[in-house]
Simulated scan of single mutants.
Amino acid sequence: MTTEARLTAVHDFARGKMRDDETGHGFDHIQRVVRLADHLLTAYPQADRLLTLTAAYLHDVIDEKLVADTQAASDEVRQFLTAQAFTADQQDTIFLIMDNMSFHKTLDGTAKPLPLEGQLVQDADRLDAIGAIGIARAIYFGGHFGERIYDPAVAPRTKMTHADYRDLGHETIINHFYEKLLTLKDLMNTDAAKALAEHRQRVMQDFLAEFKDEWQAKK
């Protein structure tokens, strides 16, 4: 089976799993992460393109915040990858990436080091969380879960555990920028991603400044 044939099958599998998502992690997000990862690959041709893009397509399919049974979801992905002739070593690399790329792993220090392929997927996923798209996704996600937009009396949390991070009852949409999104620029792995993150960071900073001026009726 060719690389492109396997990627087509992975594309279709991921679309079937994520197309109905209403949290900002739908298949449109998946496609952007794949495109960003493919773009970053041009600067790092030594990375395995099949493993990079497969992990990019599948990275949210077993995410704990999106699926009720992560073990069952993982088993289904394993079965799918086996059917598409991915070797055991390839599957292990894909799962290593998916299991260790999430932001919450940086909070409890449990993340295992990612191979270059994983660093590219992580960078692509983080790039889609910032900038204009990141602003839209943060509002969409917060609205889906009933978060308040903003409360000046509620300070952003500076130190969070995994449990704190998942506790949306103590977060506002605007605070999420300070608690996570504005930190992602400095967490990028690759120089190519760092360059793209600079502009997206400024977009968010400009938005927050404008938002707070309007909140206080200064404009």
Rank of each mutant, 00 (worst) to 15 (best):
L96C: 12
D191M: 09
T2F: 08
Y165L: 04
L40G: 06
F13G: 05
L7H: 03
F207V: 01
R202L: 12
D99Y: 13
D99V: 10
D123R: 04
E210V: 09
F145E: 03
L81M: 10
R15V: 03
K194H: 08
R6V: 10
G131I: 00
T190R: 04
A43E: 07
E198L: 12
R200Q: 15
T87A: 11
M160K: 07
K212T: 10
D191R: 14
I94P: 04
K112N: 08
Q84R: 12
T3M: 13
A56E: 05
V33K: 02
V154Y: 08
A124E: 07
E64T: 14
T52C: 05
G26K: 04
I30D: 06
V34M: 04
A136N: 13
T82L: 12
D123Q: 05
E214I: 13
N100G: 09
D191T: 15
Q119E: 15
L40V: 06
E171P: 03
T172C: 00
H199M: 12
R148K: 15
D92G: 13
D151K: 07
A132G: 10
R126D: 11
I94S: 08
D213T: 07
P113V: 02
A195Q: 13
I173A: 01
R35E: 10
A9K: 14
H11C: 08
L53D: 03
A5L: 12
T70I: 15
A88N: 07
Y57G: 04
H170A: 09
Q31D: 07
D191H: 12
L196Y: 11
V10G: 05
D213W: 03
F177D: 00
V121S: 13
R15T: 05
G146W: 01
D20S: 09
L58P: 02
R49D: 06
T2C: 09
D60K: 08
D164N: 00
V121E: 11
A193D: 06
I135H: 02
I149M: 15
D123S: 04
D108Q: 03
P113L: 02
M188R: 11
L184D: 02
D164L: 00
I133F: 13
P115Y: 07
N175K: 01
M160R: 05
M98K: 11
R148Y: 11
A155W: 08
Y165K: 01
H25T: 03
F80I: 09
A129K: 14
T42W: 02
G142E: 02
R200Y: 15
D75L: 15
I94Y: 00
T93K: 14
M101S: 12
F80N: 06
S102Y: 14
I139G: 11
V154R: 15
I97A: 10
A217Y: 06
H170Q: 15
A43Y: 09
P152R: 01
R202Q: 11
M98S: 11
A72F: 05
T82M: 07
L120Q: 14
I94M: 11
A138D: 05
V34Y: 00
Q71A: 10
A83V: 08
D12V: 06
D167S: 00
A85G: 03
